[in-house]
């Protein structure tokens, strides 16, 4: 019973990690760049969501669940736009400059985004207006319960991930995205506009991150400007764990990390959850350095 409850909680947190991890992994896929700014784009999603929800709650007099829909949509658009802008301004001019310069540029963007957030919204913890996160829940059996918010999280994450997976695996542009992540030069010979595919990745990755920002903030209720660094770093680890560059890997890695953390916290000790989770992580990486799903297929040369 206790186990089922922990699994429900773990999968919820795991889907947050997974949604954010997708942004890291997709950008790594097409650019071989660790987009350190991604965690802060996600954090900005939480803040922009706060502004949106506060605005609507102020107009309506109180927070209501429907407000999440327009706010998430708006945040998705704004963060996607920011993502494309970051790529255009901070990464594209450095594409021929080797591996190090773009990483430093990404770290720079991360600090810029974090500082702006702290200056605009303040360093204190911020709380979403009550009434937006759906209240209540269901008793599944005995003491095991699932909240309406958890159901919403699971449904949203599942739809987003399934949609992304189908897009990447089944459509022409999704296949082109996989082609670009394998070889830019040959992709250009196919008539694929590589710059446009990369821009599209910076729409989807940060877009998903932005959605995750709002949903995470709704789930926990409050957050501060370090959200991008702390939570984002774990999502990055989830991406590595699953096999960076691999989209199903990011989903799997996120779920795995969420579950391990929750189970360690529930069965052993909340204070020791990070120690246990990362010991397991290190063990996995020792045996599978490329991550759980990383580079399963060796290319013949």
């Amino acid at each position: 019973m206790q186990l089922l409850q922990q699994i429900i909680n773990g999968v919820t947190i795991g889907s947050f990690y997974a949604l954010v991890a997708l942004g890291y992994t997709m950008v790594y896929g097409v650019l071989k760049l660790i987009n350190f700014a991604h965690g802060d784009l996600f954090m900005w999603g939480a803040y922009l969501g706060l502004t949106g929800v506060s605005l609507l709650a102020g107009l309506a007099g109180a927070g209501q669940p429907w407000m999440a829909v327009p706010v998430i949509t708006g945040v998705l658009a704004l963060i996607a736009l920011t993502g494309v802008l970051v790529e255009r301004v901070a990464y594209r001019p450095l594409r021929a400059a080797g591996r190090l310069a773009p990483i430093i540029s990404a770290l720079g963007v991360a600090f810029i985004l974090e500082s702006i957030a702290r200056n605009v919204y303040g360093a204190r913890w911020r709380t979403y207006p009550t009434g937006v996160a759906p209240a209540g829940g269901f008793v599944l059996a005995g003491s095991v319960r699932i909240s309406t918010m958890q159901i919403a999280v699971l449904v949203i994450s599942f739809l987003l991930m399934a949609g992304l997976y189908l897009f990447v695996q089944r459509t022409r542009v999704g296949t082109a995205m996989r082609a670009v992540s394998l070889d830019h030069t040959v992709s250009r010979l196919m008539g694929i506009d590589v710059d446009r595919i990369i821009a599209l990745v910076f729409v989807i990755g940060p877009g998903l991150g932005g959605i995750a920002g709002v949903v995470v903030a709704l789930y926990y209720g409050s957050f501060d400007f370090t959200l991008g660094w702390s939570f984002g770093l774990k999502a990055f680890i989830a991406a590595i764990l699953g096999g960076i560059g691999n989209i199903p890997g990011a989903m799997l890695g996120g779920m795995f990390l969420g579950l391990v953390e929750t189970l360690a916290s529930g069965y052993i000790s909340p204070q020791w959850k990070d120690v246990i989770a990362y010991v397991i992580l290190i063990i996995i990486l020792i045996f599978r350095p490329t991550g759980i799903l990383g580079e399963r297929v060796a290319a013949k040369v």
Binding site: T175, L182, M190, A299
Partner: peptide, 18 residues
């Protein structure tokens, strides 16, 4: 330079991208 993790059909489809 074929796309190693794409199927043969997917590789051909990329050739017909335009």
């Amino acid at each position: 330079h074929i796309f190693g993790t794409l199927t043969v059909t997917e590789n051909l489809n990329m050739g017909a991208y335009i």
